[in-house]
């Protein structure tokens, strides 16, 4: 068998192996590339950064472990920013497993904060019921949004820890979505950002931003900029956001705090490998066609 034939009939396992290496090596050796934030990422960062301290921000965790690598860096970056800016954070989940993703995020942040407080010597308040509340998951997708649009307490008589909503300090002046200053939905599909725009942010007249997987992001462009103030689509934007966060809050600039940037190295190399395969595929295709013509 000639070299050409070998390439043309390449075993898919060879492709798989090379992709595996392309993903694993940059993560193991933390390959990093310089990042320049695209305009929309900068726009979102400024929007959040310019909200006054004490603003009420709802963060909805609408994803599961499968999308964790892509979406978790966004969730972490946004939560960090909200905490640093002194916002009040209302956590919700439209996906059952989103509740766990939120819990893991909060646990991680609690550990982070202790460490960052030592670094900066500044006390960062992050107390349950005061700085953040976890409302948890309710089934019903847009039905849930429809209800909290007018009344949180009707959908959530208690928070995820069985505490009556009426007794939580930060709920005292927050009765419905309309009382919020910003909605953030981090979503991997349906229900997610699209439902939050259509049934929540738009009728409530509240600004909304969101994070989507690279696959879902194109579907949400039609809502930007009128109904959607901006979205992070895919890992690259997450990495850019982490860069902006690191520049503004140096305590978060350490690469080990920036999972998105670490993973981005893997994505970059994997893209190049895929492109090389496409190039090789095309070369064999042209050789094939030429031979076909001769024969």
């Amino acid at each position: 068998m000639s070299f050409y034939e070998k390439v043309a009939n390449i075993d898919r396992r060879v492709i798989f192996l090379l992709i595996g290496l392309a993903v694993a090596i940059p993560i193991i050796f933390t390959v990093r590339f310089p990042g320049f934030p695209t305009p929309m990422v900068q726009e979102i960062f400024d929007l959040v950064e310019n909200l006054p301290a004490g603003s009420k921000v709802l963060v909805s965790f609408d994803y599961d472990p499968a999308s964790e690598p892509e979406l978790q860096p966004m969730a972490t970056a946004w939560m960090r920013q909200c905490i640093e800016r002194g916002f009040r954070i209302y956590i919700m989940a439209l996906w059952p497993i989103g509740q766990d993703m939120a819990r893991l995020t909060v646990d991680q942040l609690k550990r982070d904060i202790a460490e960052k407080e030592r670094l900066t010597g500044k006390k960062v308040p992050f107390e349950y019921g005061v700085n953040y509340v976890d409302l948890g998951y309710k089934s019903g997708a847009q039905g849930v949004i429809n209800v909290v649009l007018t009344d949180f307490e009707k959908m959530y008589p208690t928070d995820s820890t069985n505490q009556a909503l009426s007794s939580i300090p930060m709920m005292s002046d927050t009765k419905s979505l309309k009382d919020l200053d910003l909605i953030i939905s981090i979503s991997a599909g349906t229900p997610g950002l699209k439902e939050w725009i259509q049934f929540g942010a738009d009728p409530a007249g509240v600004k909304i931003i969101g994070g989507s997987t690279a696959v879902q992001a194109p579907l949400l462009y039609p809502y930007y900029p009128k109904q959607l103030s901006g979205q992070l689509g895919g890992l690259k934007t997450a990495a850019e956001y982490e860069k902006l966060m690191g520049d503004r809050y140096p305590q978060y600039s350490d690469i080990k705090d920036n999972k998105g940037r670490i993973r981005m190295g893997a994505q970059a190399i994997a893209h190049i490998v895929i492109m090389l395969f496409i190039v090789v595929g095309n070369i064999t295709f042209f050789i094939d066609r030429r031979r076909g013509k001769r024969g």
């Binding site: 390449i10 898919r12 492709i15 798989f16 090379l18 992709i19 595996g20 993903v23 599961d64 472990p65 499968a66 999308s67 964790e68 690598p69 994997a270 490998v273 895929i274 395969f277 496409i278 090789v280 595929g281 095309n282 295709f285 042209f286």
Partner: peptide
Amino acid sequence: AATMFALLAFYVASASYRAFRAK
């Protein structure tokens, strides 16, 4: 679940190898 989802990366590579030909 994460493993099944991660298969996507490999399949994207093999699918694009086949599909993206300048025909």
